[in-house]
Design a protein around this nucleic acid. Structure first.
Lengths: 343, 343
DNA sequence: AAACGTAGTCTAAACGTTTCGGCGCTGTCA
DNA sequence: TGACAGCGCCGAAACGTTTAGACTACGTTT
């Protein structure tokens, strides 16, 4: 910028004025400066600008797992609308781990992001302290955190799995293995709550031995499903609390020499683009990823432009049960879980 | 920092010295300063630091499609090793579009990233100019660019699809529909070259009417496969040049009322974690995502620490053909593509 | 005893911007 | 004709760091 100023024989203040259009400049000077800029190939240094302005036009985005198609779908949407609004996105993931989460948030805050969009790994005391200390606007997606009172967009998880569980119960299933996510997350808790409320609605007892914690990852879910499948009274159906885990469940079923849906029914949270092509066609709960992305980004943009109400806004969207054919009616009671052909 | 200095009654230089450990400081002073830091809750401003140092400890990562599991897998690995080395990652995607690509690169360069890891959308003149102008180390992943002479790690695409095509030809298929990616990318070209070289090896003619460009996305691939399936002499098999496109191909097959592999065989580039659970079990070419991620990150780290040779290093890895059961031997010639049950 | 090295500290100049206040000019109005 | 407003431009002070260089005090070498 100094070089440009020298070349055009003006002050840096004037160069700044034409670069930002922040002050009126006579046509001759503007011209001289613009050609100087072009000749030198000058690019404004965003770092210096950020330092002076106290704003980076960058927002930090942290999801739990970048490998999870649900998250990548909403990330893509968020990036799109934020980019359109002139913001860059700094993406990271916590790998479902609060330690990692703290590190990553510090990293983003260090870099002075203007805002934070987070799918938290857990109810983390440290995170709360950091967020309280930092004065950047924050919006939570997918998951809520008890002590963190900010804008958020989440799903009505309880209701979604309630409906799915009712569907399975109506099919006659009584022993539905439930592969849960971490109960440190609101999604983990709410989805399980939906399962329980469905049992309650049907006046059935909640059997703790049927639920296993799978941490939202395939590996743990596989083990969990294996345990359930090798137990004396194995479940006739499974519900998986997310997309990654259902893969683990299906692997366990296959490795036990069983078949879905012939031997065991399966349903899952989160939809797949290939769910109605590959067999078994999985019955799932589809999330409105587009809406989640758009609305969370918009919440952030509103907050950034200072035109949102001071109290936090919470959006809760509804999932959609996609009934396909990975669940079969249970023909008759099979008390000890012995195999039984359907239809 | 000034506040800390005042509180501890020392100069900012000394504070800087203890924060960075860049100069010896007496134990008493160090103590005083550290407690002052803690009391004030001081955090070093990375922006100011970057401005002074000319380095951001951030590297820019651009992939073609953040929605593609292949890319997210390697992104996860890259982030992991870079993070371990103390670097942050700024991720963006070009959506397979050169215009978007230019924008995003400018955005990253603006933010003064210390390095660039790119899966380019195409052989873009503008990109070359930008990269030549900017003096940041660059490593290309997945795709090469003719005019860009930097470190790179790619797959031996030609050979991988050559082998896959040979496999299909050996099964008796003669009309293999090929759904290509954009020929503006090296992967698009090299994979197609592999297909052609397999035909050549078998002394078979290359039939242009069997190949369609699908741009690496599901939608276009669906249309392409539809065209091929409704043509007078439909293919008995398909090869899809990536993972997203094979979904489109499978949808087209289903929508035509056909079945895989009974009516048409399918193989594809890129593996899926669920490929051997859901039916048909897709035959694919698995890429060594872990290695691609690790090695590209390492290339960058080496370059950053100045300990790599001046001439660019190119790593080429091998894919692995995962034979499952989406390809069937072709029983007999079916000249007009009429349906024919296998085995 | 003089010279010298060294550990510990400070001052001040950068890094590349933005922006406030000032200053000269021109034109308008009383 | 003089006061005054507004326009166009500039100088210089920030923003929060790092670091070269200067300085002091003290121990060690010649």
């Amino acid at each position: 910028m100094l070089d440009v100023a020298r070349a055009a024989k003006v002050s840096v203040a004037t160069v700044s004025a034409v670069v930002n259009g922040s002050a009126p400049v006579s046509p001759q000077l503007r011209d001289r400066i613009e050609t100087a800029i072009r000749e030198i190939g000058y690019k404004r240094n965003a770092i210096a600008r950020s330092l002076k302005m106290g704003t980076t036009r960058t927002i930090g985005l942290m999801v739990a797992d970048i490998t999870n198609p649900f998250f990548t779908d909403v990330v893509a949407v968020i990036q799109d609308v934020l980019h359109r609004a002139g913001y860059a996105v700094m993406l990271c993931c916590n790998d479902e781990d609060v330690g990692m989460q703290d590190e990553q948030i510090e990293l983003l805050l260090d870099r002075m992001v203007d805002g934070l969009i987070i799918a938290p790994a857990g109810d983390d005391a440290h995170l709360k302290r950091i967020l309280a200390g930092a004065s950047v606007p924050t919006v939570l997606i997918d998951r809520l955190c008890d002590g963190i009172d900010t804008d958020a967009v989440v799903l009505d998880n309880r209701r979604a799995v309630h409906d799915a569980a009712i569907y399975m119960l109506d099919l006659g299933h009584r022993r539905i293995g439930y592969i849960s996510g971490s109960l440190d997350t609101s999604t983990g808790r709410d989805r399980l709550a939906g399962y329980r409320s469905a049992l309650e609605a049907k006046k059935l007892a909640y059997d703790e031995s049927l639920v296993r914690i799978g941490n939202f990852r395939e590996k743990d879910a596989y083990k969990a499903a294996m345990q359930l499948l090798t137990s004396p009274e194995r479940p006739t159906a499974f519900f998986s609390a997310n997309n990654l885990m259902v893969i683990g469940v299906m692997k366990a079923i296959r490795d036990m020499g069983l078949r879905c849906p012939d031997d065991v029914s399966v349903a899952s949270f989160d939809d797949f683009p290939w769910a109605d092509i590959f067999q078994p066609h999985l019955t799932t709960i589809a999330q409105p990823v587009q809406a989640i992305g758009e609305q969370s980004a918009q919440l952030m943009l509103d907050r950034l432009s200072g035109q949102s109400p001071s109290q936090p806004r919470r959006l809760v969207l509804q999932g959609r049960l996609m009934i396909r054919d990975s669940c079969r009616p249970l023909q008759a009671d099979a008390p000890d879980g012995t195999r039984r052909e359907a239809s």
